[in-house]
Design a protein around this nucleic acid. Structure first.
Lengths: 145, 145
DNA sequence: CACTAACATTTAGTACGCTAACTATTAGGG
DNA sequence: CCCTAATAGTTAGCGTACTAAATGTTAGTG
């Protein structure tokens, strides 16, 4: 393997490009989510719940690739915001049932606009975004092993 | 613009793929940096300083795309680790001169191995990584406007 | 049926990363 | 020159994100 004359050059590091791109794209969401009192990680939790609710903390963690210790306080904030309820599962008291409230379900209609606004702000073609998504998925497949 | 039947599907969100990929790749660095007492953001600061030292906080911020409020405490930790010195610039007392110590310069030789180990662990081809880097650079160009 | 191992979540502790407010220094205009 | 505006960093406050340790619940085994 040959990484060229300067393997440590900042502008060649995929890790640097990844973290800056991630922060920059999240920054696009900030003003769009702020009216709803949401942060981007909280928004991703709602995306997961809009696909299936209720779900346990562990299930959400596997879907969102988060440690339970990250989700636990986040879900409390979502509960405080009124978008979610937290209740121990009757069948297994170890598990927590995280469920959308009426407000949480209602928010989905509002949120449908967001992806369009983000793509618009980014100003990249859908083809380009799809190919980026595919490349990122290969990274995920690689890190999952 | 048409984002398909479910614009909010989690597995289609570029922002989700970006943040998970970023966290996953950083996780690869963790065991490699831990022996040196470094976190990944701190490692990126060193990459910047290895290219040019001393530099001011503002300069580092523009290079690394960080708010000064993020860098300020980070640089103190790097100083506590002994990799960096912090000193007000004589010419302009507002600016801080952040400079590598001998230990900071010496670390570079050790760090040269890291990119190879990361690419190895990732198990992706260099061509694939370069095309990913290019795609991420287009995102940065888009968000910079 | 008691005991222990496995499991699900929470808490504690550290380090980002952001916005907003604050301090100190320098530069510029009347 | 003085006064104000601009500039450079720091601090405070909040919300992730991680590891490790703690808590409480269930399941499995002798």
């Amino acid at each position: 393997m040959d990484l060229g004359p300067d393997p440590l050059a900042l502008d060649r590091q995929v890790c640097f490009a990844l973290s800056v791109a991630s922060r920059s794209v999240i920054a696009i969401y900030r003003p769009l989510l702020e009216p709803h009192g949401l942060t981007h990680p909280q928004y991703l939790v709602l995306l997961a719940l809009w696909e299936s609710s209720p779900r346990s903390v562990g299930e959400l963690g596997r879907t969102l690739r988060h440690e339970p210790a990250t989700l636990s306080p986040m879900l409390k904030r979502l509960e405080a915001l009124g978008y979610v309820t937290r209740r121990r599962a009757r069948a297994d008291e170890r598990q927590l049932e995280v469920e959308l409230t009426e407000a949480g379900r209602a928010l989905r209609a509002e949120a449908e606009k967001i992806p369009y606004e983000v793509v618009e702000t980014l100003g990249m073609s859908l083809a380009e975004l799809e190919s980026l998504h595919k490349a990122l998925s290969r990274v995920l497949a690689a890190t999952d092993r």
